[in-house]
Design a binder for these strands. Structure first.
Lengths: 343, 343
DNA sequence: CGGCCATCAGCAATCGATTGCTCCATCGAT
DNA sequence: ATCGATGGAGCAATCGATTGCTGATGGCCG
């Protein structure tokens, strides 16, 4: 029965008062106790296998050593590594992670409320919208919060995101380098920073590379999924049948593009190149393997955890602007190739 | 500031003692309080937005309303739905889920110890080995525990698994029905109930369908991953080049088989049929789309949560044998076809 | 009219740890 | 020798809710 031993037991056994035992056990207050007494208490605690009761401690100190994490659509494979990374860093810091999943269309607010009722010490949200009421409130209430993967337009709380400008730059330059000129974009939802940032990046890079680009070269998928990507790609190809390349908002949308391209009687990688984003697992096993922008999700989770730990320890104030933009790299595969000669 | 209001505040405002307020608020003890008083307290609590402090309550009642969940290799896509399913049921029951990931080869014991120190009310483990010391200890300590996806050989605690016997039956009968006779098996690790059960099922079904089957038709992948699956498939095909079908231990192993088959100059689905297991996302987009056994992971998570909730409420005793075997169904795709004529 | 019981609410202990304050003893300085 | 400073340890309050027990009130029955 681990944990049956209370501080009282330790104190009695060591022949000191509980308060003394408490101070001896706590590294921060240890200095006010006689070193010999400290030794004695420590020895007894070890022998008895004493473990402080987290609830009792938390009640008094008003800390739960618990982090709340909200994940949208946990079935999306990008979130596994993200959670794993965060969890490992939090675990090393003595924190545990309460996880909550919110399916697409679900309401984040009550979930966050539940987490706060549980008195989590901080939050990691992977659910931010570009304009996010929940985040604003958390900011207003001074609840240590870190955003991950997505962020808000206005800086409210720290975030760890990937540099979409850079990521899209990688694919656009890659495509242009291959000789593509007529490039389209099947964007993700533009009310999310990821969809928006990539969309912006697409425009920016096309222009800066001196290529014509207009809004009609873009279609928006309602969601970062295969099916919506497929439908958006259909619309795009119908309007602009002579595109030689499509930059997809993420890998799943890219897979939707594959399907649409085939339905138009063309071959992916030969007639029309496609790029994805995120570089999820198994992408290299698709037909053809998809060129994508590799996003370090595990690292993203780790950085988010470190950042939040920093906020919690008071080392960093969340009023100072801190945002981390991770740099992606390009995974080139055979879904991208020079445009066909007759193009 | 949700939660700043304490029971004391409510009691004072309602003009009653805290104990009365407490009883009025708790449905179980409400009957002992005058209905009018109850109304009054309830009204005040609502007005003030009172939320009980979970730590204070937990300290007294010795319950944290928290469940610990241990996931192996959280990056594996099967665990997303499983976690989501469990989390939604637990959430509805007022429980929160502390999640812990253990990477392959990691040690589960200290993670469980941490969770127990946190005083979780129960555990869901997706990490069971066929002989599992940790599970035995939990059983011995009477800690409400449920296993999910994998189970132990000896019945120790309740589990929710898929019926591997039935699942393998689906694929073997499917293959035999297509005309295959020389069928091999690339098994998953046999120290896990999933690897073992499918291996057993393969033998059983082959025999019961009157086909020759010997251990040399089987190779074991060290892990449920593409790469180990590939290596095992290589070994198998080298030994038995005339196989017309391979039953893979799971989808990822199946994808490894794809690669090995191609390296042997054959075509998947035409020369050699392949079946997977689990039916993970994107499998339908592989080349060729893989026939697989669909396992309802979300449901598995839900059932696990329900079962554990049952144990916790005392409705069910964990001494009575309870195990749920979910029934899988077959997703037929084009990785399976009749054997080639010359075979 | 007295006594008994049921109903309801308050008192106070309790869960286990933390921490401000007090108290005592010792030591050094004047 | 006296006083103050200092180190070290104990006392008790506290965090917020739950709950066994006690006590008061009022109704009913004999």
């Amino acid at each position: 029965m681990a944990g049956r031993v209370t501080l009282r037991d330790v104190a009695r056994e060591a022949g000191v008062h509980t308060s003394t035992a408490s101070r001896a056990l706590n590294p921060a207050t240890r200095s006010v106790v006689n070193p010999e007494t400290v030794e004695k208490v420590l020895a007894v605690a070890r022998r008895l296998g004493y473990r402080p009761h987290p609830l009792a401690r938390g009640l008094r100190t008003n800390q739960t050593m618990t982090i709340g994490m909200v994940i949208p659509d946990i079935e999306n494979p990008i979130f596994g590594p993200l959670v794993a990374g965060a969890e490992s860093v939090f675990g090393a810091g003595g924190y545990s992670v309460l996880i909550t999943n919110v399916d697409r269309g679900g309401n984040v607010k009550p979930l966050v409320a539940t987490l706060l009722e549980r008195r989590v010490d901080g939050l990691v949200l992977a659910t931010a919208l570009r304009e996010d009421e929940v985040v604003s409130e958390l900011r207003a209430q001074d609840i240590p919060t870190v955003l991950v993967n997505r962020t808000t337009d206005e800086y409210l709380v720290p975030s760890i995101v990937v540099d979409d400008q850079a990521g899209i730059g990688l694919v656009v330059r890659h495509l242009v380098g291959l000789g593509h000129r007529r490039i389209g974009h099947v964007a993700g939802p533009r009310h999310l920073s990821t969809g928006w940032g990539r969309y912006q990046g697409f425009f920016g890079w096309m222009q800066s590379l001196g290529l014509d680009v207009s809004p009609e070269q873009v279609e928006e998928a309602e969601w970062f999924q295969v099916e919506p990507g497929y439908r958006a790609a259909q619309r795009l190809l119908e309007r602009l049948p002579d595109l030689t390349a499509i930059v997809a908002g993420n890998d799943l949308i890219g897979l939707g593009c594959y399907r649409a391209i085939r339905e138009f009687g063309k071959e992916v990688g030969r007639d029309v190149s496609v790029t994805g984003y995120n570089d999820i697992a198994l992408l290299d096993l698709m037909q053809p393997p998809m060129t994508s922008v590799r996003v370090p999700f595990r690292r993203m989770g780790e950085e988010a955890a470190k950042l939040l730990l920093g906020l919690l320890s008071g080392e960093r104030s969340d009023t100072e602007t801190i945002s981390v933009r991770l740099q992606p790299i390009l995974s080139v595969r055979s879904s991208t190739a020079p445009p066909p000669d007759d193009a």
